Computed example of a mutant assay.
Amino acid sequence: MERTLWVIGLLVFWALMIGLMYVGWRRRANRQTYRIGELPSVPDDLGAQLLEPATGLYVGSTLAPSWQDRIAVGDLGFRATAEITKFEHGILLQRSGATTVWIPQERIRAVRTERGLAGKVMTKDGVLVIRWELPTGTEIDTGFRGDDKTLYPAWVGSYATTTDKNGDAS
């Protein structure tokens, strides 16, 4: 009988912890809603394709400059397999099972490689990170871990700016 009560108590405790994590995630999303706002929609004319599509994993998006402050609004905080392509007018990030992310060219602040983002830690320069400004004025970092990391220099080189360790352009 005593063992049964322990098992029931642990199950209740586990369910309570899961419930509290869900409530915390929802509260984070509510706090971030006004900072994130509406994402830019994909335009009809993307312009010329400048870099070949690259496949990989959309790691997530965080509020800049914190590499761990994951965005909880919509589906920006969830990982998904993705394909990233650079066009004349911006970057198209097509995610499987999630909304497509369009990053307009004029909103891109920096493209760099990092060791990690949104709780995903890799080897040195394992994640391609795009810092860009939302229409609300909030800067975010969007991470992509490519299947072929030899493509990273072309991405970083196409946005050659001097950036410091936090990704701030100078």
Results as ranks from 00 to 15, higher is better:
A110I: 00
E139F: 08
T4Y: 05
P153Q: 13
E2M: 12
D44P: 04
I103V: 07
S66K: 09
F144V: 10
I36N: 00
Y159N: 10
V121C: 07
G56E: 05
I108A: 02
R95H: 04
T136M: 00
W25S: 14
S41V: 14
A29Q: 09
I36V: 15
D45S: 13
T138F: 00
Q105V: 01
L10H: 08
Q32P: 11
T62A: 11
D45W: 08
G74F: 06
L92I: 03
Y152H: 11
G167I: 03
V23K: 10
W6Y: 14
L46G: 11
K165S: 12
M122D: 14
M122E: 15
W25T: 13
G167C: 13
E114D: 10
G37E: 02
Y152S: 09
T138K: 00
P53E: 08
I84W: 02
R95M: 04
S66I: 05
L20F: 08
V12D: 02
V101F: 08
E52C: 10
E106P: 00
W155M: 03
G56L: 06
L20I: 14
E83N: 09
L57I: 10
V127H: 13
G60L: 04
A80F: 14
R112C: 02
L151M: 08
V101K: 01
T85W: 03
D168T: 11
L10S: 10
S41M: 06
A169Y: 07
I103N: 00
G19V: 03
G119K: 09
D148M: 14
G9W: 05
M1V: 12
D45R: 12
Q68K: 09
I130K: 03
L134G: 01
W155D: 01
A98N: 11
L11E: 05
D125G: 05
I8L: 13
A54Y: 02
P104F: 00
I18L: 15
K149V: 15
R70N: 15
A48M: 10
R131N: 11
G167L: 13
I103T: 06
A160F: 14
R79K: 14
V156F: 07
W155K: 05
A48C: 04
V59E: 03
N30E: 15
W25D: 14
Q105I: 04
T138V: 00
G90T: 02
Q49N: 07
T99N: 09
T85N: 04
E114K: 07
G60P: 09
I71L: 15
W102G: 01
D164C: 11
G143W: 06
